[in-house]
Design a binder for these strands. Sequence first.
DNA 1: ATCACTGTATTAACAAGATAATACAATCGT
DNA 2: ACGATTGTATTATCTTGTTAATACAGTGAT
Lengths: 129, 129
Amino acid sequence: MQLRITDQDGVPIYVQVVRQIKYLVSSGRLAPGAQLPPVRKLAEQLLINPNTVARAYRELESEGLVISRQGAGVFVADGVSPLARREQQRLLAERIDVLLTEARHMKVDVEALIEMIRRRSEGFDSRTS
Amino acid sequence: MQLRITDQDGVPIYVQVVRQIKYLVSSGRLAPGAQLPPVRKLAEQLLINPNTVARAYRELESEGLVISRQGAGVFVADGVSPLARREQQRLLAERIDVLLTEARHMKVDVEALIEMIRRRSEGFDSRTS
DNA sequence: ATCACTGTATTAACAAGATAATACAATCGT
DNA sequence: ACGATTGTATTATCTTGTTAATACAGTGAT
């Protein structure tokens, strides 16, 4: 599982893990029944403490997003459905509007913005997980 | 000065203050020479400790965004224009990357995203303040 | 010169996040 | 049954953020 953890912005690591796993589930990349990485494995991968991963998993379970079975693993709960396609579009539109507002405030016109997006999208995959 | 402080997401208060003031400066809402609220006033308004505001101001000064004169106040630095411009670009780039990540997760390719942006930008001014 | 207002500094105390080391308990493949 | 793997729990320690209470120092209007 690919997660991006940063200690630059003050957001607790376990919160970052929770949020990103939530996102993976809600976007359908983690289907119901799928097993999450073992706490020790994920901790090793992210270079954080197993306790921190465990805390994130505990948090997720308390929200009903996952079910953990001691000795077996942590699994995405049944009954959690990925967001509908329309909902995804709505989210995207929302973010676009935020960006457009931002750009307008900075007196960056749409074409310049688009140019900037094209430039940043080149090799974007190599910069992210 | 209107700032929004939350203690929900783990981001240190002083960081929130720094970021939002940075934004106010870089977006031109706080012009060079403008005085920031006194530490005690802002602390009272935000219901936080004066030390926390002081820390935010100290941070901002160390980055050259403001100049603090003991006994007088804290003022937006002159010559922040080019800095501000670069900061603007950085902020915008950051938001663009978020959007690109989002879009990629939703399997929306760059060209489709750009098309969506063009569509949403039409008559955008009429939909916003 | 005085006084209110400004930023700055110090010290103490507390809470939360993270790490570390360790132990225990349940599961699963063999 | 065994052993590796899994989640869970505990305790201690460190760091960071925040509050609190004070004190000090420079500025500027009067």
